[in-house]
């Protein structure tokens, strides 16, 4: 247990990066996923087609490959993140962090899109007809009537998608972000006799984060059910 307690600041810093990755990519994938679902259920055939193919392709690609693309292939196509250089307290946000956010966002937004689409399908057709009948455009119908109800119906699958994201942030460790798993590797290397406790401590860290997140998702679900 000494390895973890005596390096507790590193333990926290690792999970700090994990949380930053989760919060930023989570927020961005909610936004991108919402735009994608609007494309997929919208009246414009080209956007429906493009949205469908985007989801199919990116969702079928392993997350590690998406990361590798932005790390190794994208720079050759002129897509670079070297300009990202932000330092807040003990945390450094550089191109490695930016690539992780981009990869996680693009990947997770597909699943957000599909979770929301199940919610959109759960909203009765009559709601959209009533919205159109009072003169709302497609955008107004989506933003005022369909999506607010679709979000409510999508809370359980969206929570699963975002919990997967929390754990998927660990892939960033391979690509140079010092998040929780990266710190765990350093610790297990330096304290090889305490590997079991180190593994358990980090697993507990993830479980705690997911537990808190699930609790909040349940609260949200119950709050919206009453309303």
């Amino acid at each position: 247990m000494d390895a973890v307690t005596s390096n507790f600041d590193l333990f926290l810093k690792g999970f700090g990066y994990t949380l930053f990755l989760f919060l930023i990519s989570g927020l961005l994938s909610l936004v991108l996923g919402t735009l994608l679902v609007a494309c997929r259920v919208g009246p414009v055939a080209v956007l429906r087609w493009a949205g469908g193919w985007y989801v199919t392709l990116v969702r079928s690609t392993p997350l590690v490959v998406v990361f590798a693309f932005f790390q190794f292939a994208a720079p050759m196509l002129g897509i670079r993140f070297g300009w990202v250089d932000v330092h807040i307290g003990a945390f450094d946000f550089t191109s490695f962090f930016a690539i992780a956010v981009v990869a996680l966002t693009l990947y997770t937004s597909c699943f957000v899109c599909e979770a929301l689409r199940s919610g959109v399908n759960a909203v009765p057709l009559g709601q959209a007809e009533a919205a159109r009948a009072i003169g709302l455009t497609f955008g107004g119908t989506m933003s005022q009537v369909i999506l607010p109800q679709a979000f409510r119906a999508s809370v359980p699958p969206l929570a699963s998608v975002l919990i997967a994201l929390i754990k998927n942030t660990s892939v960033a460790f391979i690509f140079g972000v010092g998040e929780a798993v990266a710190q765990m590797r350093i610790m297990t290397n330096n304290h090889s006799s305490e590997r079991t406790t180190i593994f358990l401590a980090y697993a507990a860290g993830y479980i705690l984060i997911v537990f808190v997140f699930s609790f909040l998702a349940n609260r949200l679900e119950r709050h919206w059910r009453v309303a």
Partner: peptide
Amino acid sequence: ADLRAEVGMVFQSFNLFAH
């Protein structure tokens, strides 16, 4: 959409916005 704003519609299943 502008035209529909000029035409009121009442449905069999009410279709009030549930949220």
